[in-house]
Design a protein around this nucleic acid. Structure first.
Lengths: 222, 222
DNA sequence: TGTTGACTAATTGTATACAAACATTTAAAT
DNA sequence: ATTTAAATGTTTGTATACAATTAGTCAACA
């Protein structure tokens, strides 16, 4: 649905700041729609936990550092399992998809190293594509469903902008290690590598959030 | 929201069979509401995966045996992690809640052994209460959120009706083992015991579904 | 000057009306 | 008799109107 995608993207891209109330009327006006489809989109986002109910209407959800830790723990668990299952169930097609994603990932990183800032979106997309390829290879659609909900939260912080070249290269290396483990049908190796990969991502985001003190994106801990 | 709870409960209690189209008008009439709140409830259930979109409207989702396996794998992963974290973060209050749940669980089982069929609901509730107490003790609200979505699916099959006295007693014993591990702060012990506990539940459901061949609840595998 | 109360404005929750899409049935033609 | 096409009826998707609740402001009284 159109309204759902629009509002979700707007939240991810930071157009609506956490804590900010989402007015149905203004959203409807911006989308050239009536309030009805807007309300339905909001209800879906509410069920996914991206917006929280207020006394009147909803607001974009605030995430604390503790939230980030918990979400990454959850993601580690799910994607680690996904990787181990991928190492069992992967087909030749799955391997090809992973390789294609990593090839484009590397290309985008190289462009970034030449200071092409437009490649950041491509980096994000190809990283996502690799992870999608893994969970898809696991052949467990329910894991896939839940991962897709978990993955959006860190996107809100747009932490990819903060990676340095060394970190991006390292990320690519781990992707290759995971790919190898999946190709060689080594479930535990794949799981551990994925764990490590996501924990590195978690540490990066937390470091990033530690730097921007009192960010409007971050809820202060009590 | 009222409409949401009503429709969800109706699905769990088998009032709407899988594959059956949910008419907005009839639901609204039954609830003495207009179509608007009914639609919003349906949109939420759709986001949770309990109903699936059709060309027109939605229907109750079908689950295959493979779905059940995948969902239980997911639940094992999540609740196993929850139990291990509970063993780390549990407070005295958490332990009390677990003990209270198990005490009532035992009482309900005893009533069941005296052929009191009304105690089945109590058994289901207290089993749920124990599991809730565990994930709550883990102090990870995001895990809790996802578990709550995963847990509803098996309820559709109402497999508790199929437990025999020995299995119920055994279930209670494992609850106690988990409780002990959490009390003694043994994360790995708690995780393994929870894994075993849920795998037993999975096997029970799959056995049950194997017996009722061609159940309308079960989508035939292709 | 600060606090409380009432009034007003704005926004959500619900109902209903209307239009569009889809299914079903009937009739006609090959 | 079977297949296709058209028409009708049912149901969803969207818009809008109305009611109810909340927040905000202004004034009055302590």
């Amino acid at each position: 649905m159109y309204a759902y995608e629009f509002i979700k993207d707007s939240i991810i891209q930071g157009k609506f700041e956490p804590g900010m109330r989402l007015g149905e009327e203004s959203l409807a006006k911006e989308l050239n729609l009536s309030r009805t489809p807007v309300r339905e989109a909001i209800k879906q986002l509410e069920a996914e936990g991206l917006v929280v109910p207020l006394k009147r209407g909803v607001s974009v959800r605030h995430f604390s550092k503790e939230d980030i830790r918990q979400i990454y723990d959850l993601r580690t668990l799910l994607e680690g399992y996904g990787a181990s299952q991928a190492a069992i169930h992967r087909t030749g097609e799955d391997l090809k998809r992973m390789e294609a994603a990593n090839a484009l990932y590397e290309k985008a990183i190289d462009k970034y190293l030449e200071s092409d800032m437009n490649s950041i979106k491509e980096i994000v997309d190809m990283n996502q594509e690799f992870h999608d390829a893994i969970v898809n290879a696991s052949k467990n659609s329910h894991i896939q469903f839940h991962i897709s909900k978990v993955v959006v939260v860190p996107l809100v912080f747009r932490s990819f902008n903060w990676y340095n070249p060394y970190q991006l290269k390292q990320s690519l290396e781990v992707h290759k290690i995971i790919h190898n483990a999946v190709r060689n049908k080594e479930p535990e190796r794949a799981r551990i590598a994925m764990h490590e990969h996501i924990y590195q991502g978690r540490d990066h985001v937390l470091r990033h959030l530690g730097q921007i003190k009192n960010s409007h994106l971050l809820k202060e801990e009590v």
